[in-house]
Design a protein around this nucleic acid. Structure first.
Lengths: 220, 220
DNA sequence: TTGCAATTCAAACAGTTGTATGAAACTATT
DNA sequence: AATAGTTTCATACAACTGTTTGAATTGCAA
């Protein structure tokens, strides 16, 4: 087969540029210049610009999802098919947070690319994200097993909030640092993971079925 | 002065189109066609496309922020300068959620526009968002007064998580609906507000300074 | 070496984009 | 009615976009 050299040079250059400057103002010509290949090579190897972006994102997504499921499976096996909720949540948000936060200077290109992808949503990436639901269902299942007397609705909301805290913290890490004048240490990834897991666990552990009712009372 | 008719026709058309089809594939030509005005009118009245987008977003942001502060001020006055934390959090996330969620068919153009702005982040909007920090500081102050023995870091994290849950729920409302097979009712806005406020309140009320330590223990 | 497929390349294409221009039309004041 | 200022309009501009083409080159198998 081919040497594949051009293909991977394009992938690397594209990831680097997208990570640094965003999808908005990186053109194919920027990419091929960075990769030292011909302009037509992108269409030859990937078909189109969108397919290039999609391939980049899929590759990284698969890696994260695999890591998530690995942690989940390990936890459930260790617990005889049932894992504690906080370990499940850690498997859900840990890989993403670890992949995207941490000291900026030692942040991988892949991490910076994924941050971009979470900030600037472009069509090819959105299409892929929409297919992530099946992956999340596996976590719903595990959470159901961990909290058998919890309603499905509460499980979904708990999952939603856990992802919310993780993704928003990544997206707005710069703002949180500025707002807190550096007091919130986003580089201490394990602390961030612990905080997210802690709150999400509380959200799911709080008084059964009471959540909605009690909150509504407080609303008055 | 002028009739202002053209100006507001452009604003209305642009908001409608951006809300429906996103920033990515709405051109100035689409906008002026929808508004029944000449192409050059946009640059004449707004200077550039980006300034048009900025004006749209600023207008809506100011409205939301004003509503937030109105609720906050009312609550603090009623409590003699100190409001309960859950009321503060409600003032923070309530206006945004109420503005962006609710039955789709009766969702205002403004609301749909703001959802777009939160999903597809474009440069002019990002620049404005970065200036939102001063506004958030007012909530930090109120939260400090409500929870005087809470560390600043915990306050910042609590604020961050509250905004995280609100914004992520808006951004991913479609996915949550699909994942839960319609069981999570995103149209019941007050329930959503109550859920977010409830979890955020718990996050801030949970064992002082213990949060981090206890979570770290759970991590083992 | 010859032949054939895979790859690279320069060049052009076709389309779109936001913006600028200068004349025309309008508005309101004198 | 004449004027000055504002607003509208058709049109052109200049730049950039992703993609295509067809010829040149390369690498490998027979």
């Amino acid at each position: 087969m081919a040497s594949d050299h051009t293909r991977s040079a394009i992938l690397a250059a594209a990831e680097r540029l997208y990570a640094d400057r965003g999808f908005g103002d990186v053109t194919l010509r920027d990419i091929v210049a960075e990769a030292n290949v011909n302009l037509a090579a992108v269409n030859y190897h990937f078909g189109s610009k969108d397919e290039l972006i999609a391939e980049l994102f899929v590759t990284r997504s698969i890696a994260t999802n695999r890591e998530r499921l690995r942690e989940l499976k390990a936890a459930e096996e260790q617990g005889g098919g049932r894992a504690p909720i906080e370990v499940i949540l850690r498997a859900l948000v840990g890989p993403t947070l670890r992949g995207c936060l941490g000291p900026e200077n030692q942040r991988s290109t892949a991490a910076r690319f994924m941050i971009r992808a979470s900030i600037e949503s472009v069509p090819p990436i959105r299409r892929i994200k929409n297919r992530e639901i099946d992956h999340l269902r596996k976590f719903v299942g595990a959470m159901r097993r961990a909290l058998p007397d919890r309603s499905d609705v509460d499980i979904y909301w708990g999952l939603n909030f856990a992802l919310a805290m993780a993704h928003h913290t990544i997206r707005e890490s710069e703002r949180l640092t500025k707002l807190s004048d550096g007091q919130c240490d986003l580089d201490d990834v394990e602390d961030v993971v612990a905080r997210v897991v802690s709150v999400a666990t509380m959200a799911l552990a709080a008084g059964r079925t009471e959540t909605k009712a009690s909150a509504k009372v407080a609303a008055r």
